[in-house]
Nucleic acid binder design. Structure first.
Length: 829
DNA sequence: AGCACGCCGACT
DNA sequence: GTCGGCGTGCTC
């Protein structure tokens, strides 16, 4: 048998071993033996089918090839090679490895995130009767008989079919004995998931290029089959207008049905041809529109160009609507001209058709789009096109850092500070911004980070001259910066000019906007009606049984909700502790704002936008449409309103209570408050109108507020960096976070405490947490986090990571850790 | 991630 | 005894 395979060429005589990456969370690499007949087919970066474990087939990617046989075990043969040419480049494989090391996960997990699902084949175990053996049914047990019976009717059964058939979950032992008795076969069917889209194109039989033949055809058809004549006529007309005529085009243009076309093709008058067509071809793109940069933009562009001479990364800090996109477009054009590929990253929410269309205007079909709303077929297609250099620009969300580039020249990361660049669950918990910067360094490509509110670590790097820095401080197109007014709630309360939660200043501004038929956005960073319910007699406050935070009252559901874990209970009218009926709602959320506003401004059309109102599938989009089409006068909302609301006639933006923004409970506290304030402010004033921002607060002289007014990022960031040098969570640290998950909150509490103490034995003060008494909950798992902070460069992060892995492993071997999942995450700060 | 094995308690 | 639950360990 081997000799047969051996004959076909000399290179086949060698025995190759392929080290592969499996799409699993496994630490080790696995080596498979290459059968001789596949010697010519294997190559690094191609996909192979391998059997892993008893019966499972997986699609793996060849990571390396070697002639050295593994010593400690007998390697299995790999079963098949799926690709004619590699679909993953060596660059990518190294990139995967780097990500796995950096983010403390496995290469297989990175592979899972990197490859579109259609590249990973579906494996379905199928059972069939052994045709060779005439089965002696007298020796069969009841269950075996049932299965054989079913297989008589149906040639194949899947495992799950048999589970249903026998009504029991564990069927493997039964099947195993049947397999050993040679009654059945177990086969694995691997199906290619990707199916290219086909379209039928129509051609005229070349014999009719002769005008006489054509005329003869017409006279013949017109008499006997006028419909067919019409169709041929329509075809000739269409073929003059376009190169390729599809069957659908023809049917549409001629009004002919499929039967007519079929008769014509059967008669060989028309010739049908099936072609794979791209799902991604966009017709009618406009030729590159020209635009002029204004002076500020030109200055910034020159500065960026100049800094790219020395620096690999430049931060473009441009206020909202200062025209950053046009600068990007210029840089992209230059990179294309230099024959390089460009990756243009946007956060998922910003990847609207609006933005895509805008860029398509300039780059037409040179631009490929890649994001999570694409289906698998489309993703595979983009992948192939990047591999074949058909795209010069890729516009995409975070996962597009995984595309098979080979000639990257420039990466643009817009809204660089956006937290949605970070994947939180599942592993790899990567930040596409950081991954992209690393990716760029592998290609000696340049990176432009753009933001109106840069992340602290980015700003820090810019201040330290690790990154270059360019600024745009003016708004584009003559729109001036909004006027910001800080109003003291304390003052107005004293003067008794407050109306519920609204200062007289805000009331006036809102009234005026309504009179002018303009729109208002009110920002309140808290959903629900009231965050605290308190008994006036005994000071009892209902708290979450899991998270130990006070429950928020939601009027719409008349329930008390925990905003961390989702726990819910009936609201109460009687204090469960003392029986008093004097229960008071303290504080306020979006529901209450909406409620009271409708009383104060009964004529205004008010809508609310928060997690509760946007949970339904299209609710978010509907709200945005309503706002755009001016069916809403006042929009009350949480952070959601701070992002992406770029179009409406909003002239007044108010922050109902800035103080709630100034005390975020985590290590990115000031950064977030600042960004929130600045982003909300940036929403005011569009379409040539100057906007107004009202900030209501008890602390008008709070540093962060003052700096937002002065638009003085520099000062804020520098103070931050300075003040936090000795603080618990300083910037420019590397934070390694351990997510500890468990189905049971109580268990989780003890386990995370224990794990933190274990970590303290090695890392001492660097261990922070488990954070707060609170827990968040995702998919029925309660989650706590333990943080470890390391000054950059003070320790070897590689060693630290090794040690952390060890501690986790150690923890997992103890009985204490049962049911508990620990997942590491790395975040630079 | 699967999947087997093994140990345990619960039930026809 | 058999079934189902769950913890443990292995997969080239």
């Amino acid at each position: 048998m081997l000799e047969l395979a051996d004959t076909h060429n000399t290179s086949s005589r060698k025995t190759w071993f392929a080290e592969v990456v499996l799409p699993l969370a496994i630490a080790k690499n696995y080596t498979y033996r290459v059968p001789f007949e596949l010697n010519d087919a294997v190559a690094v970066g191609k996909r192979v089918v391998v059997q892993f474990g008893k019966s499972k087939l997986y699609t793996a990617v060849i990571h390396s090839l070697t002639e050295r046989a593994p010593e400690r075990y007998e390697a299995k043969y790999l079963m098949d090679v799926l690709d004619d040419s590699p679909i993953v480049t060596e660059q990518q494989l190294q990139f995967w490895q780097w990500l796995a090391d950096y983010y403390l996960c496995y290469t297989g997990e990175v592979m899972n995130a990197a490859l579109p699902a259609a590249f990973k084949l579906a494996s379905e175990t199928r059972i069939m009767l052994n045709p060779d053996e005439s089965v002696d049914r007298s020796t069969l047990h009841d269950k075996e008989f049932l299965i054989v019976d079913a297989l008589d009717l149906q040639p194949e059964l899947t495992i799950s079919d048999i589970v249903k058939l026998l009504g029991q979950k564990i069927v493997m032992p039964v099947l195993k004995t049947m397999f050993e008795k040679n009654i059945i076969h177990i086969s694995e069917a691997v199906n290619e998931k990707y199916k290219p889209r086909k379209r039928t194109y129509i051609k005229l039989n070349p014999i009719y290029s002769d005008p006489d033949m054509l005329r003869a055809l017409f006279t013949q058809l017109e008499r006997r089959a006028p419909k067919q004549a019409d169709a041929v006529l329509a075809f000739i007309k269409l073929s003059r207008e376009q190169e390729l005529v599809s069957k659908n085009d023809l049917m549409e243009a001629s009004g002919a049905n499929a039967a007519v076309v079929k008769t014509l093709t059967d008669k060989q008058i028309l010739i049908a041809e099936e072609k794979n067509v791209s799902r991604l071809y966009y017709e009618n793109f406009e030729e590159a529109a020209t635009f002029q940069l204004n002076e500020a933009q030109q200055g910034a562009l020159d500065s960026i160009r100049q800094q790219f001479q020395e620096k690999d990364v430049v931060l473009l800090h441009g206020v909202t609507s200062s025209g950053k996109t046009q600068i990007y477009i210029r840089l992209v054009e230059e990179a294309i001209q230099a024959g390089k590929q460009v990756l243009y990253l946007l956060p998922e929410i910003a990847l609207t058709t609006h933005v895509i269309e805008r860029l398509r205007k300039y780059f037409g079909n040179d631009i490929g789009v890649y994001h999570s709303r694409f289906n698998d077929n489309e993703r595979v297609e983009v992948w192939h096109r990047v591999l074949n250099h058909q795209y010069k620009v890729i516009l995409g969300a975070r996962s597009s850092v995984f595309l098979p580039f080979d000639n990257l020249g420039l990466i643009i990361i817009d809204e660089e500070h956006e937290t949605s660049y970070k994947q939180f669950d599942p592993a790899p918990r990567y930040n596409a911004r950081d991954a992209a910067i690393y990716l760029a360094s592998r290609y000696q490509a340049k990176v432009l980070l753009g933001s109106a509110t840069p992340a602290f670590e980015t700003y820090f790097n810019a201040r330290n001259h690790k990154y270059g820095f360019a600024e745009l401080t003016e708004r584009f197109g003559g729109v001036s910066m909004p006027q910001i007014e800080v109003v003291s709630i304390t003052e107005e309360t004293k003067r008794k000019t407050m109306q519920s939660h609204f200062t007289s200043v805000l009331m006036q501004d809102m009234q005026q906007a309504l009179n002018n038929k303009e729109q208002v956005i009110l920002f309140q960073n808290r959903r629900g009606y009231a965050p605290v319910l308190i008994c006036r007699v005994c000071a009892f406050t209902p708290r979450c049984i899991n998270c130990d935070v006070s429950l928020t009252y939601h009027k719409s559901s008349s329930h008390l909700h925990c905003h961390y874990c989702g726990y819910k209970e009936e609201s109460m009218t009687v204090c469960p502790a003392c029986g008093s009926t004097h229960l008071e709602y303290k504080g306020f959320g979006t529901e209450k704002i909406e409620d009271e506003l409708s009383i104060l401004l009964p004529e205004a059309r008010i809508a609310r936008m928060d997690l509760d109102t946007t949970r339904a599938r299209n609710a978010y989009q509907t709200l945005l449409n309503d706002l755009e089409e001016k069916r809403i006068d006042i929009l009350v909302g949480t952070q959601m309103v701070a992002k992406g609301l770029d179009f409406s006639d909003v002239t007044v933006v108010a922050i109902i209570n800035a103080d709630s923004l100034l005390k975020y409970p985590d290590y990115r506290a000031n950064e977030r408050s600042f960004q929130m304030l600045a982003q909300v402010s940036g929403r005011a004033g569009r379409r040539g109108k100057t906007g107004k921002v009202v900030i209501q607060t008890y602390n008008p002289h709070h540093r962060v507020i003052e700096q937002v007014i002065a638009n003085d990022y520099k000062d804020l960031y520098l103070t931050e960096i300075d003040e936090r040098r000795n603080f618990k969570y300083p910037p420019f640290y590397r934070i390694i976070q351990l997510y500890v998950k468990h189905k049971d909150a109580e268990q989780l509490y003890h386990q995370s405490e224990y794990l933190a103490n274990e970590l303290r034995k090695h890392f001492g003060e660097r261990v922070i947490g488990p954070e707060f008494p609170l827990i968040s909950r995702i998919r029925n798992m309660y989650i706590k986090s333990i943080m470890l902070k390391f000054e950059k460069d003070s320790v070897s992060i590689a060693k630290v990571k090794l040690l952390i892995r060890e501690v986790i492993l150690q923890f997992q071997t103890t009985k204490l850790s049962k049911g508990c999942i620990v997942q590491p995450d790395v975040d630079p700060y």
